[in-house]
């Protein structure tokens, strides 16, 4: 139910993101989603890539701190309030959202929402039971 996401320590320095994307390109690893927010000295980059294990390997070799994190991807229905239902369910279950972002898996498709909570093992079943479409597929 959980999908494997890449987490990479990202110092706020010029060219650092390009070093990351360059490495993945050189090893023919496809980036499906990428988020990185504005923080002061450093942040954590999150990415959904075609071969996360290989990505961690090559990044670590090159001096990056990288790991695979288990996250949940859902596809909310295309109607007003569908996101609210998801977050209401998570909140009512006493779980906290660590971070989330969305991406479009293929052109023209509905966006996926990646969610990481502090109790991620329980979030998937919780949403599934409530009828939310949880993405099971390996991306």
């Amino acid at each position: 139910m959980l999908i494997r996401q890449l987490s990479v320590f990202m110092p706020n320095q010029k060219g650092h993101l390009a070093r990351f994307t360059g490495l993945l390109k050189d090893h023919a690893i496809d980036i499906r989603a990428l988020v990185c927010f504005d923080t002061a000295e450093y942040g954590i980059l999150r990415a959904i890539v075609s071969d996360p294990e290989r990505a961690v390997e090559i990044l670590t070799e090159e001096g990056f701190v990288a790991k695979i994190s288990q996250v949940l991807a859902v596809e909310p229905e295309d109607r007003t309030g569908s996101l609210h239902e998801i977050f209401r369910l998570i909140a009512d279950a006493g779980q906290n959202v660590d971070y989330m972002y969305s991406f479009v898996p293929t052109q023209g498709a509905m966006p996926y929402f990646v969610i990481k909570t502090d109790d991620i093992e329980k979030t998937g079943p919780l949403l599934k039971a409530a009828g939310v479409k949880v993405i099971d597929l390996e991306l």
């Binding site: 987490s7 990479v8 954590i44 701190v65 790991k67 660590d98 971070y99 990481k116």
Partner: peptide, 14 residues
Amino acid sequence: ELADANMLESFVML
């Protein structure tokens, strides 16, 4: 130097 990748689970841990 950050050595432990497990700290990347959340920004709060860092």
